[in-house]
């Protein structure tokens, strides 16, 4: 790719090319004089004309799309404006967030437990964890949610007592667990199977020597896990977990399978079917989902930074050489500054 305007990067760099050609002849091959320094290279920057052209085309296309969308009737922007801050919608948005938080918290705790179980020496414990993962990863989450919706049909009462005897206490399942919590359980149990694999990968990534050092200091297995292994595994665990949270936020829209309809998606659909205008309400839901995922991405960035403590060069500044050609910021993604897998010796 030769650029027409710049020509090939010039060979002579500056008028002061003195030290190089003339100086070399009488210098020994190995110099011990640090004062005799070659001057800094000042090459002409490589040009990227196609990047600029492509960026220009993209900008034009986006502008055209926005202008068109703003005028298009079907988007129903008036209804969008009317419902985006509607109290029913913001309440539903809160429900979606709560579903996400509760199910992720349970999933992470359960996932860590399952991961530790899978790494256990006890074959029974290992087997139980394997069976769990097999079932919950092997069936679709939508189907699992439908099943949870039928929980009360399958188990109409919850009994406490000795098997085959008259129960001491008995509850109607419907009275004890409402639909919201069925949704939480359904999402959490499914998610924990995936979290278990993420946590397991994190634990396995920690150097065996860490375990040995802690053991040699007289720390118990649990202390070693809690204070030494898990904190280091976090560096590996956090980025995919952030992705899982974001993914969970969107998966909550499937709770309609239970059926639970007070989340963002369900509520929006209910309103839309009343006013016969689905598209603006879908946009409303999307706007809220996007707001939350954006917030989560920011949070993820800071969490990652915190857990890369002690890995060194965390303060290194991001060099800006990719941005020098054009003002198109789309290619620079600060969240990608993941810690490199460097080995400490």
């Amino acid at each position: 790719m030769s650029s027409p305007d710049g020509g090939r990067p010039a060979k002579e760099t500056s008028p002061g090319g003195v030290g190089r050609s003339r100086g070399r002849s009488h210098l020994p091959a190995t110099s011990t004089n640090p004062e005799d320094q070659a001057e800094a290279i000042q090459a002409i920057k490589l040009r990227h004309p196609w990047r600029n052209i492509f960026a220009g085309v993209l900008v034009v296309a986006v502008v055209l799309f926005i202008l068109d969308a703003a005028q298009r009737e079907a988007y129903g922007w008036d209804n969008f404006a009317k419902y985006v801050f509607d109290q029913r919608i913001s309440q539903a948005a809160l429900n979606t967030v709560l579903l996400t938080i509760y199910s992720m918290v349970i999933a992470i705790i359960l996932g860590i437990t399952l991961a530790v179980m899978r790494l256990s020496n006890n074959p029974v414990v290992r087997g139980v964890a394997w069976l769990y993962l097999w079932i919950f990863r092997g069936t679709p989450v939508y189907v699992q949610l439908v099943f949870w919706g039928l929980f009360a049909t399958i188990y109409s009462t919850i009994d406490v007592g000795i098997p085959f005897m008259e129960p001491w206490v008995s509850w109607q399942t419907d009275d004890v667990i409402d639909v919201f919590w069925l949704a939480v359980i359904g999402l959490a149990l499914n998610e924990s199977a995936y979290m278990a694999e993420i946590v397991r990968a994190g634990i396995l990534s920690v150097d065996k020597g860490q375990d040995e050092a802690a053991t040699a200091l007289g720390m118990s297995w649990l202390q070693t896990m809690r204070r030494v292994v898990i904190p280091q595994a976090m560096r590996i665990i956090i980025p995919p977990t952030g992705n899982e949270v974001i993914s969970m936020l969107k998966t909550t829209s499937l709770v309609t399978a239970i059926p639970y309809s007070f989340d963002l998606y369900g509520r929006q659909r209910d309103i839309a079917s009343v006013i016969f205008d689905p598209i603006p309400l879908l946009l409303v839901a999307c706007a809220w989902y996007l707001l939350f995922t954006s917030l989560l991405m920011v949070g993820q960035y800071f969490l990652e930074k915190r857990f890369s403590r002690g890995v060194g060069h965390a303060v290194e500044k991001k060099s800006t050489n990719t941005t020098e050609t054009a003002a198109v910021p789309t290619t620079v993604n600060p969240a990608q500054k993941a810690p490199e897998g460097d080995e400490h010796q």
Partner: peptide, 12 residues
Amino acid sequence: GMVFQRFNLFPH
């Protein structure tokens, strides 16, 4: 007490 070839300090 044990000291290892590769130190095994806790990096965090």
